[in-house]
Write a protein that binds this DNA or RNA. Structure first.
Lengths: 252, 252
DNA sequence: ACGGATTTGTTCGTATGTATA
DNA sequence: ATATACATACGAACAAATCCG
């Protein structure tokens, strides 16, 4: 264990040199253990690289290698000039028949806001048409949105809605910042999840930029189809969540 | 499009040199289009690197760069001495109250088999104890297993079971290759999912080796708690699926 | 609002051990 | 055995962003 008296972050804590493990790997493991053990708490600033270097008796580069490994796993996040911080625990995101982003965030004590990035009227692809139960080449409205909780980007979503049924809903969404409220103005009093499919992959540079992620991070991809109160398919969505910021909780 | 008569994989198919895109990027895009268009089917062996080089009029290294990009996205898989193969489409894996790995695979026309890699009697961590509703430091059996469908590794799982209730179930699992059958011999006639949590991250080298993945691929991580026919918690599990090989389908 | 101190990011160079061809 | 490549580790200096009095 890495027990130190009164938090001195520079107290000597030498590595096991000559063992099978490289120095940077041992350092990463020890810092991870300190985080897991609660010595460094989520949101907290870690000691500086020089302090770690002093503690473990290594060069600053070796500490940087270790911190880079932890950052690659989403455990910490470094900002130039600011410091290195322990990342917050992932937010539990419930996937149920009737989960609403805004309600979930409200329950977690966070403020939700949806931003319309782009909307275009287009022709449905074969996949989209099938998902919405439309004829091939039917007209659909494609909306790209970004959802934030307390200004932190949580998810990005591509949403397809049949036209002309939902013509103009993009303007309503832009005003209200919520799909639930936008639906309400288009005679959809209630809607629920018909199907859900989850996969995961590495974020592209564009996606990472949009979600304010460091490049190379993992995305959870959720494809879902929603139906209205009469069981008619009204919406197909593909959402992207940062796996570092969200855990999906299945309610069934 | 990349239309060629009668499959000649070396027929000249020059690139758009001098355009904004690099050569390897154009090659990657074309091979991807060929896969998407069905010219190269899942499981099929791609033409050799030299054949691609001849087709596009580039050096073999340029083709390798393109194939490496596709491999990094999980579209193809290169094996030394063997060739490069198109990866299979992800298998839909249903997450429901009572999903059984063996049944799912049988439904998909594949043969399932579970292999016990390691089992140890140990003390529950705080998390495991809470998940199983046990006192801290209670004794548990930890089993590490690998599930295959038609010999392809699909998932790896860490399973914790309370002791002494399930003492010896590891031996039964090793014999039967199925947790359902092993439970049956320990007076668990039925069990179902109490909670499910999904996250995703990059596979470690050990995990990648175990699942026969190329390093750096994405894992879906599923934490779940199972209860028996009386609602008692009998099992906590953390499963790892290759996101390239599996899509999770939520049944609710 | 300013400026210096702090902290991470980047790029040189050097040396060493290890695995590979 | 020799050569090559690669990862690891240390050192120094500077750039860039941030913090704080």
């Amino acid at each position: 264990m890495t027990e130190r008296s009164h938090f001195d972050p520079t107290a000597s804590d030498p590595l096991d040199r000559g063992a099978g493990l490289t120095a940077w790997r041992q350092i990463a493991d020890r810092i991870e253990a300190d985080i897991a053990g609660g010595l460094f708490k989520p949101g907290e600033k870690l000691p500086g690289e020089m302090q770690f270097a002093q503690r473990f008796g290594v060069n600053r580069h070796t500490v940087r290698r270790a911190l880079a490994a932890l950052a690659a796993r989403g455990l910490v996040r470094a900002t130039q000039g600011g410091g290195t911080f322990v990342e917050a625990k992932p937010l539990p995101y419930a996937i149920g028949r009737k989960t609403r982003f805004s309600e979930l965030m409200a329950k977690a004590g966070r403020e939700a806001r949806g931003e319309l990035i782009r909307s275009t009227e287009t022709i449905a692809t074969a996949e989209i048409a099938e998902a919405l139960g439309l004829k091939p080449d039917a007209a659909v409205l494609e909306m790209v949105t970004l959802n934030r909780a307390d200004e932190v980007p949580i998810s990005m979503a591509w949403t397809w809605l049949p036209l002309p049924r939902f013509s103009g809903i993009d303007a309503t969404y832009r005003k209200t910042g919520s799909l639930t409220r936008a639906f309400a103005r288009h005679e959809v009093s209630d809607y629920s999840r018909l199907s859900t499919r989850i996969s995961a992959r590495i974020a592209t540079v564009e996606e990472a930029a949009c979600l304010e992620l460091s490049p190379g991070r993992v995305l959870l991809v959720i494809d879902s189809i929603n139906v209205n109160q009469y069981g008619h398919r009204i919406q197909a969505t593909r959402s992207f969540f940062s796996a570092d910021r969200v855990d999906l909780v299945i309610e069934q």
